[in-house]
Computed example of a mutant assay.
Amino acid sequence: MTTVVVTGASGGVGRAVARIYGERGASVALMARGEKGLTAAARDVEEAGGRALSLPLDTSDNSAVDAAADRVESELGPIDIWINCAFSSVFAPFDQITAAEFDRATAVSYLGFVNGTRAALRHMKPRGRGVIIEVGSALAYRGIPLQSAYCGAKHAIQGFSESLRCELMHEGSDIKVIMVQLPAVNTPQFSWGLSRLPRRAQPVPPIYQPEFAARAIVRAADRPRRREYWVGTSTALTLIANAIAPGLLDRYLAKTGFDSQQTDEPRPESQPANLWQPADRTDDYGAHGRFDEQAHSHDPQLWASEHHRTLLAAAGVGAAAVAGEVTRRLLR
């Protein structure tokens, strides 16, 4: 039986990932702060046919993550896959984020990944195998306004993963470190994140459902041959555009990035903020946010990404056929 650890498992993408592994009959260790969400996530896993172990903790606490990893090994078995997905952030211009808030967002969204990766490696290295998935974002390459803490953390995870990957390759290790760069996803973070925006925060369209992102993460763990997966057409286009014309994107986002991240509704004064305390202490938010009507469940880019060799082969066959026809006509 496969043993999987999912951080940030109480809601959003992590919750959807845990459910998929439950459907596969896996043993799933669920790490997050919100006990209501964790309890519901464990129920999801077990009702789907898997085995669940709830581990309420803060991933920024390295000692807690280490102790939890030991429990996973003793109660569920050797860890095969570790998926880092937990994060917290602040929606606000940089100069409206306090130093303590920025430190806290970085501790969860970046150092939480480092702590999880360290704990995973401590158990995987003696066995010489395992897969670590670092859930990233298009924002790991392309920063946008109003999310400086989140973008900084995702950029840091990208650099950290590249460094670690090289070290493992140098050692001849078969442990794989894969980054999965996600698009905008319909998760509860836009309802429970600390925000100083005048209107409700929203993902930058196009928006995808968490199950779409979760399927991509699970497939990446199934096929860890590639160092990185881009998920969604918007992610691919953003990363390509940023590589070609980053200055143009700076100007475009300066004009559009504020409105595109806010709905027309005023931000409720009573909106929870999960930066310091989990928002799901009393309520289970589930995997989905408020944008089901706008969110997509499929995207042809994901299929193309997974079958790029087939597409290249088909393109090669097509090119050869065209070349053959041109040659035939020239030799008439």
Rank of each mutant, 00 (worst) to 15 (best):
T39P: 04
S148V: 03
W192G: 04
F258E: 12
T39I: 02
G22C: 10
A319N: 11
S54D: 09
S63V: 07
G50Y: 07
E211G: 14
F94N: 05
R129N: 08
E35L: 04
A279S: 06
A287R: 15
F291I: 05
H288N: 14
D61A: 12
D95I: 09
T106K: 04
G289M: 09
I83G: 04
T282A: 13
F91S: 02
Q181G: 05
G116V: 09
A64F: 05
G50T: 09
R142E: 11
A32R: 00
P78L: 00
E75P: 02
C85R: 00
Q271G: 07
L30C: 06
I217G: 05
H155M: 06
Q271E: 14
V218N: 05
A48Q: 08
G14M: 00
D44C: 14
R281H: 14
G324Y: 08
N186Q: 05
I132M: 01
E269R: 08
A213P: 11
I79F: 08
Q189R: 08
T106H: 07
V90M: 01
H155K: 04
A214F: 07
Y208V: 08
Y21K: 07
D292A: 15
V177K: 00
L55R: 04
R24H: 06
G11K: 10
W192S: 12
I81Q: 12
T39A: 15
T187K: 01
R251F: 03
A69D: 03
I83V: 15
G128W: 06
Q209K: 11
T187C: 02
K176M: 10
A138Q: 13
D283E: 15
R43H: 11
L164N: 02
V28C: 03
F113Y: 14
E211A: 14
R19T: 09
R129A: 10
E23G: 09
V108F: 01
V5I: 15
R15Y: 01
Q294Y: 01
V114I: 14
L275E: 09
E306K: 12
S27V: 00
M124K: 04
A213T: 12
K36L: 03
V65W: 01
L194W: 01
A86N: 03
I132A: 00
D284F: 03
D222Y: 05
A42G: 15
D284R: 00
S191R: 13
D61H: 10
T238I: 10
S54F: 11
S137I: 10
G143M: 00
T98Y: 12
R200F: 05
G22P: 10
R71L: 11
V322R: 15
Q301D: 07
D174A: 13
D103P: 07
G257H: 08
E269Y: 02
